[in-house]
Write a protein that binds this DNA or RNA. Structure first.
Lengths: 129, 129
DNA sequence: CATGCATCCTGTAGCCACTACAGCTTCAAG
DNA sequence: CTTGAAGCTGTAGTGGCTACAGGATGCATG
């Protein structure tokens, strides 16, 4: 059994964030010690790690709740997981495409800028009709 | 002189967002009609368009405030603008790199998933120690 | 002149996923 | 027995909007 600080160290989720996840219903409320401190067993720590990994992969809290609910299920689960993953993958690819366009636009924007210039081409472009 | 709705149409910034920008100090408070309605001249509309373009390019509100302040200045301005643009460009490139990694990780995650499977490899990976 | 409807106004609350206090209690070490 | 770290609850703040509620105004029609 681990107190919240150790659970944080073991899972990579910060203490405040763990409490937030509990409030938000992402993870179930853990047992408490006689004095009211949260006590996490290894399954609870594994759940926190699951949430951490999923967040690092960019899944929303809503998606993670769904994934957590699917975890103990069987049969249909894997297809549902795949669907969530593929939807997220599509979102990520859209974001990448957007950012690549953005990159080009930014390069073009500041291309002719120079510290000595009195008439800034970037500002001009941003202000142009 | 345009009321806020027309200013919104001309600039591409939504009505509520224009009011938010005013509250936040991104754009100065415009003149008012006798009955208290906001009235925007073409310079004010141009400022809104400037903010819109900059936001579309991913600049933060804080950066946009700086850019707006630099706009009327001369001499040093263009170098400062370039600096803000380059910093933002670096951020964008970091985000692109992160998302490309994420893309790979997601592909790997759901690669072996299938709707018929009872043991989901994605969930397994997320739960793994 | 009255009615209706669009548009405007202010002020406040909600979104996401945390993060950061304030003010308190508990626990282990010295 | 004191000190300091770590725990607790509850609330407010972050960015950049968005969405009401509840009212006033302005313009076209009957």
């Amino acid at each position: 059994m681990h107190e919240i600080g150790e659970a944080a160290r073991l899972s990579g989720v910060k203490v405040e964030t763990i409490r937030y996840y509990e409030r938000d219903g992402v993870v179930p409320p853990p047992d408490r010690s006689a004095s009211g401190r949260r006590l996490y067993d290894s399954a609870a720590v594994a759940r926190l790690r699951f949430v951490k990994r999923s967040r690092d992969l960019g899944f929303s809290i809503a998606d993670i709740k769904t994934l957590m609910a699917l975890a103990p299920a069987s049969g249909r689960a894997c297809g549902d997981v795949k669907e969530i993953g593929e939807r997220h993958l599509r979102d990520v690819r859209v974001k990448i495409a957007d950012l690549l366009e953005l990159e080009d636009a930014l390069v073009a924007l500041i291309h002719d800028c120079d510290s000595g210039r009195s008439d800034c081409p970037a500002l001009r472009k941003l202000f142009a009709a």
